[in-house]
Design a protein around this nucleic acid. Structure first.
Length: 868
RNA sequence: GCGAAAGUGGCGGAACUGGCAGACGCGCCAGACUUAGGAUCUGGUGGCCGUGAGGUCAUGCGAGUUCGAGUCUCGCCUUUCGCACCA
């Protein structure tokens, strides 16, 4: 039964006395949340007879408390999910927890609480928060990545990747965060610092496991063209991250060294090679050590190179580094000019890009130019706009543009592009180089020297080498550790019963891998698991994934534009290539929601500016919060939190409530049906109906096509305003003014047509509101006499016929200024409009005594008259 | 430095394909109802001139295209974001 009361009451909330009519959202929240749970309203199963819709918000790291910034994303997703459900789709809307990670482990080091314990309790609390917001999740599919039933499949997949050569072990120079005591992937280094704590990263040489994401570099890049549902901004970031560049590798032989001692360089501008007057090595280049030995002061040489290495990433935090370098004393031969060129070591040459060495063309590369001027190295112009040779003396900066070659032997006179092709051919023919493609993207190092993650399922045997854990022994479970020391080595290495194991091949003594996986592995495929979360034979049933995937609507923060989203696209391809899925792109549409600011800053615990959703819920109920967050701005935009805005949303809901309360008994009466059955409607009734249908159209388009949820809300507000005005015109007076009498008088409305029109409007309104304010809408739906819950109702039908206006107002401009407004039949022809406009007295006043030069008529919109 | 996006009332924002700028909300002002109003309902609310009808200016600044520009083009300013020695 509806919890409806007819009298007002006073109540004290937060020390303030409110007089409320009837709207008690806190009661409604509980009532409907229980009903939805009891009826399993949002649980779904595969049903090929219905179109599916997979609506997903990025799952959460269980930090303990969700603030309104987090919650905004879940509400956006919920509006989409609830709308699509009412539109007839079989909607999968799951949620889970990205539960492994450093914060829990760091907390354990600090306060001794085991990560498992704190994580589980954080999850419980945050789940409660989301449930109190009424987000329509299929909770039965929930899982956490720290469940062995989940991470088992990380391990299973890892072994498949080892088998396919997509996971491999290598010693390499890695980014090391001295505070978090672990390795970071390149994607996790932001401005030279750790993405989590900002500490400048150090370089260390470590053995670690890598995923061969570069095998998919071209595909990941090319496929961005097909991702039409993604924001351009995110695609651009991914393209830049992959950083494909076409060029050539060319060998510069080192003089006075054995044949085959070459410095190989990568260049995108082989056309400038005749201007290559020196060669630069990065400090990490292998020949640096060799050259040091040949130098008069090997120790000093090595120290200078080492200094360059150390300064590298950290120094970038504080702006640009000055270009430094020193001469190795060695010479190499430019293979095109056959001239000797000096070899230098430079701090700005990256060791891990290309070949770690470059040919320097100071006339045509700004960095080389600055370097050459600083160290008085020769500058030779080999490209000019018109092919006329030039001196470098007057140059103040490098000329990087393409042009025509000069002073380049037999290539002189060729345009850059042609020269590049010919030079690459010649280089290849002589075995001194070849055309290649270089990427900025590097393989993804996933080993982490931490506890709270997925154990890497590998065993090291002296006899058999590196052996994967057999599938039937998965999962390799995390041992329970009681002491968290924070020492710099892998915590798992300190657990002998974990480390010591028999080799699966020979049965002899062996050691387990003690590193765990980067938690981005967990989040790279969780959306597949949701399709079949309890499968204990496979990561998921391919048939279930075939039905539900790809994700139709995915929303989350832009901060994942590269990391999570590129890894997920990579994993989709890995699953594809091991035959488990038949698509390549996991997310059809991506929405990057804007953050919620408080006092101009991103909410964070440390800044102390978090707005806690629970206190808002207590005061205004879930729906007011939901509505406010959707109304305040379009989803992508950053917004500033406003308490008074939230209060406005609460007032709106109370206003709708009073409206329904005012009319419900009348419209639920006998013989009240669709106005389609009514003989004739008077003009006011017709206008009211038109508004109803126009609102249906606007809200539907705003949600489904434009995803502009704020204007959908304002359209509904307009409808409510019109319904108030319409109620005023009926005999009853406005709702809310004399609540008692109005209810009595509502039955006095004489025209059955009026009641039919109101009924149609209210039923449409309540259903349009449902995705935004589901609890309030459910209750009002019940008040309107419906036994079936709104969660199972269908979306209101839009009728173009009803929405069509029969009369329109057409403004008339004279020399660009509006001078009159014509009220005419909607289908008035252009010639009639012109005639009516010229005849209008307001227009005539401005055309009198002048010549009409031109009349432009935009049918149904405007008439523009030019006079002189 | 390079690249992208955005600049609209006191505030958040709207304006869909170039066609009445400021929808909707917040705030503010007034009226009604009231012992009371911080509830509710109604009306008003960009600037300037005018008692008024009305006029006039106005979408960061400056030009341009057009009958008509917040919207398109060019230049500049500001802000935000991304990339930043990637050869």
């Amino acid at each position: 039964m509806p919890c409806r009361r007819s009298s007002r009451s006073e109540e004290v909330l937060d020390g303030i006395i409110f007089v409320v009519s009837d709207y008690r959202p806190q009661e409604l929240d509980k009532k409907w949340q229980h009903k939805w749970a009891a009826s399993r309203a949002f649980e779904v199963s595969v049903d090929p007879s219905r179109p599916k819709y997979y609506c997903l918000e990025m799952f959460a790291y269980p930090s303990g408390h969700a603030h309104v910034g987090h919650v905004r994303n879940y509400i956006i997703g919920d509006v989409m999910a609830r709308t699509k459900r009412m539109r007839g789709f079989n909607v999968l809307h799951p949620f889970g927890w990205d539960a492994f990670g450093l914060p829990a482990e760091n907390a354990a080091i600090k306060n001794g609480i085991h990560p498992e314990v704190s994580t589980r309790s954080n999850i419980a609390h945050m789940k409660g928060q989301l449930q109190r917001l009424g987000i329509s999740y299929a909770w039965e599919r929930e899982f956490a990545t720290c469940d062995p039933e989940y991470y088992k499949w990380n391990q299973w997949l890892f072994i498949r990747m080892v088998e396919k050569g997509l996971a491999y072990r290598r010693k390499s120079s890695v980014n090391w965060c001295p505070v978090d005591n672990t390795v970071l992937a390149n994607e996790q280094v932001v401005d030279g610092g750790c993405w989590r704590c900002g500490t400048p990263v150090e370089m260390r040489d470590l053995e670690q496991w890598c995923f061969r994401i570069t095998a998919y570099a071209d595909e990941l890049l090319d496929a961005t063209a097909a991702l039409q549902g993604w924001p351009e901004k995110v695609l651009t970031m991914q393209k830049n991250w992959i950083g494909r560049s076409e060029g050539a590798r060319v060998k510069f032989p080192v003089e006075h060294f054995p044949l085959g001692t070459d410095i190989e360089v990568f260049t995108t501008r082989i056309d400038t090679i005749f201007g290559a007057t020196f060669v630069l090595l990065g400090p990490e280049h292998p020949l640096v050590a060799t050259f040091a030995e040949k130098s008069p002061d090997p120790a000093g040489f090595r120290k200078k190179a080492q200094d360059f290495r150390l300064q590298d990433k950290a120094a970038r935090l504080s702006g640009e580094i000055e270009k430094q370098g020193f001469n190795t004393g060695q010479w190499a031969t430019n293979p095109f000019t056959n001239e000797p060129v000096p070899v230098w070591v430079a701090n700005f040459v990256l060791g891990d890009y290309g070949t770690g060495a470059v040919m320097a063309v100071p006339a045509h590369d700004q960095r080389d130019f600055e370097f050459a001027r600083k160290f008085s190295l020769p500058i030779r112009v080999v490209i000019t706009p018109d092919g006329t040779p030039q001196s470098s003396d007057a140059m103040t900066e490098a000329a990087e543009a393409y042009g025509t070659l000069v002073d380049s032997g037999r290539y002189s006179g060729l345009p850059s592009a042609d020269a590049q092709k010919q030079m690459i051919d010649v280089a290849k023919k002589h075995g001194i180089g070849e055309g290649t493609v270089q990427y900025r993207l590097k393989d993804w190092g996933i080993s982490r020297q931490r506890y709270w993650g997925t154990p890497i399922p590998m065993i090291y045997c002296e006899k058999d080498g590196i052996v994967p854990v057999p599938d039937d022994q998965l999962p390799v479970e995390l041992p329970t550790i009681t002491q968290f020391t924070g020492r710099g080595d892998s915590p798992l290495a300190q657990v002998p019963e974990f480390v010591n194991v028999k080799c699966p091949k020979c049965g002899g003594p062996a050691r387990r891998e003690t590193d765990t996986m980067d938690t981005f592995v967990d989040s790279s495929w969780y959306f597949y698991r949701f399709a079949d979360p309890r499968n204990n034979k496979m990561p998921f049933d391919p048939e279930a994934v075939k039905y539900w995937l790809p994700v139709d609507f995915y929303s989350g923060g832009v901060e994942h534009a590269i990391l999570h989203l590129i890894y997920s696209r990579f994993f989709a391809r890995v699953f594809r290539d091991i035959g488990l899925v038949d698509h390549s792109e996991p997310f059809t549409q991506l929405l990057t929601q804007g953050m919620v600011l408080k006092d101009g800053a991103v909410m964070s615990k440390s800044k102390g500016n978090v707005v806690d959703p629970d206190s808002m819920l207590q005061k205004y109920g879930a729906d007011a919060l939901r509505l406010y967050v959707m109304f305040v701005a379009p989803p992508e935009k950053e917004v500033e939190w406003s308490d008074s805005g939230l209060e406005g949303s609460f007032r709106f809901l109370a206003r709708v409530w009073r409206l329904v309360d005012h009319w419900n008994e009348t419209v639920a009466g006998e013989g009240i049906d669709s106005p389609d059955g009514c003989e004739t409607l008077n003009p006011a009734e017709r206008a009211m109906r038109r508004k109803t249908h126009d609102t249906i159209r606007r809200v539907t388009v705003d949600i489904e096509q434009r995803q502009q949820l704020n204007t959908a809300v304002s359209a509904m507000m307009e409808l409510v305003n019109d319904l108030y005005a319409f109620s005023e015109q009926t005999l009853t007076g406005a709702p809310g003014r004399h609540a008692e009498e109005d209810v009595e008088h509502a039955g006095d409305v004489e025209r059955r047509e009026t009641i039919c029109v109101v009924r149609e409007a209210l039923e449409a309104l309540v259903r349009l509101l449902a995705p935004f304010v589901p609890h309030t809408a459910e209750e009002m739906w019940e008040m309107l006499g419906h036994a079936q819950p709104l969660a199972a109702a269908t979306w209101p039908e839009f009728s173009a016929d009803v929405a069509r206006a029969d009369e329109i107002v057409v403004p008339v401009q004279v020399n660009g200024k509006v001078r009159a407004r014509l009220t005419v039949a909607a289908e008035t022809s252009e010639s009639d409009l012109e005639r009516l406009a010229l005849a209008d007295p307001g227009v005539a006043a401005h055309t009198a005594g002048k010549t009409v030069k031109k009349v432009v008529v935009a049918k149904g919109r405007l008439v523009s008259i030019v006079v002189q």
